[in-house]
């Protein structure tokens, strides 16, 4: 190998390292800015979070009532397990909130994407970075809410170290998958503005097939089979069950691998749609 080639190789290596480093710095900055921003709106964030807690409390009350009526449990779920499931649910749900597909109409109509198009980095990184910063605020604000819910509903929670570790990874996996999915959903707006109905149907399917309404294990068999082939469970049911159980170590690993697969599929999907969508976008703007 000639000296020149070696030098080129080193250069390229350095370039790649520099790219990674600048990405990390970009994420850190975006996250920090949105953290500071969201801390200013503590009260607003709290109202939002408390309003959201009602949803799982409804499911929890209804299903623990049924468990009690059935002599203590529904398919192995006791009032205590339901409590654990729906309390962990509140954190996973908060991790799950990403840029809304309804926001794409404004992005496109007001030309907000134009500025991002000239930057050298794919625009999804800006969303991922700033929402990740918001998550840190959300987790902090969530702790007192979880404490109150724990006192009121007495959950049965006894995770192993492996479960806790998996959960810590899985909530970020869920965040990433749902970001990618909702980006794809939102990008439909590039082609048609009548998207509300599509979004509503999507969210209804997600509610039923993700474990958000009810642990997937309690759904009818064919729903469980169907959910296996869809990404929704990776964003809701799996992270919750990874901490609450019942789950084997093997299932923990499988769940993480499945998340990784959905992240890969989501990334490819976002890229393909984005490339085509941008063409439609520039066409609209002439």
């Amino acid at each position: 190998m000639s000296d020149l080639a070696v030098a080129g190789e080193v250069d390229r290596l350095g370039e790649r390292e520099g790219r990674v480093r600048s990405m990390v710095r970009l994420y850190a900055t975006l996250a920090r800015v949105s953290m500071m921003e969201q801390f200013q709106y503590r009260a607003a964030n709290y109202f939002y979070m408390v309003g959201m807690v009602i949803e799982p409390v409804i499911y929890l009350v209804v299903w623990s009532t049924i468990a009690r009526q059935q002599g203590g449990s529904v398919d192995g779920y006791t009032a205590g397990t339901f409590a654990a499931y729906y309390i962990v649910w509140t954190l996973v749900r908060n991790m799950n909130i990403v840029f809304t597909p309804f926001g794409w109409e404004e992005r496109i109509r007001e030309g907000q994407l134009s500025a991002q198009l000239v930057r050298p980095i794919h625009p999804i990184h800006y969303d991922l970075g700033s929402f990740a910063g918001w998550k840190v605020v959300v987790i902090l604000l969530w702790i007192p809410i979880a404490a109150v819910l724990t006192l009121v509903f007495e959950p049965e929670l006894d995770p192993t170290v492996a479960q806790i570790a998996t959960f810590a990874v899985a909530i970020w996996g869920a965040y990433l998958i749902r970001s990618l999915l909702l980006w794809m959903l939102g990008m439909i707006t590039f082609w048609t503005t009548r998207v509300t109905a599509i979004f509503e149907v999507y969210f209804a399917l997600e509610l039923l097939l993700s474990g958000r309404l009810l642990p997937i294990g309690l759904m009818p068999g064919w729903v469980q089979d169907l959910a296996n082939y869809l990404p929704f469970e990776s964003t809701f049911g799996f992270p919750i069950t990874s901490l609450v159980g019942p789950i084997t170590n093997r299932e923990l690993v499988e769940g993480l691998l499945r998340q990784a697969a959905w992240i890969a599929i989501g990334a490819i999907g976002v890229n393909l749609m984005w490339r085509r969508g941008v063409k439609a976008y520039t066409a609209v703007n002439g």
Binding site: A43, A44, F47, Y48, V50, G51, M52, V53, I54, E55, V57, I58, V61, V62, T65, V152
Partner: peptide
């Protein structure tokens, strides 16, 4: 407007008769 959000959240509880909920709620 955030208080309004809170109300929308709470309103969902009306899907079931309020007697199913614990006393405080």
């Amino acid at each position: 407007d955030h208080v309004q959000e809170l109300f929308f959240g709470l309103y969902r509880a009306g899907q079931y008769p309020v007697s199913v909920y614990p006393a405080w709620l």
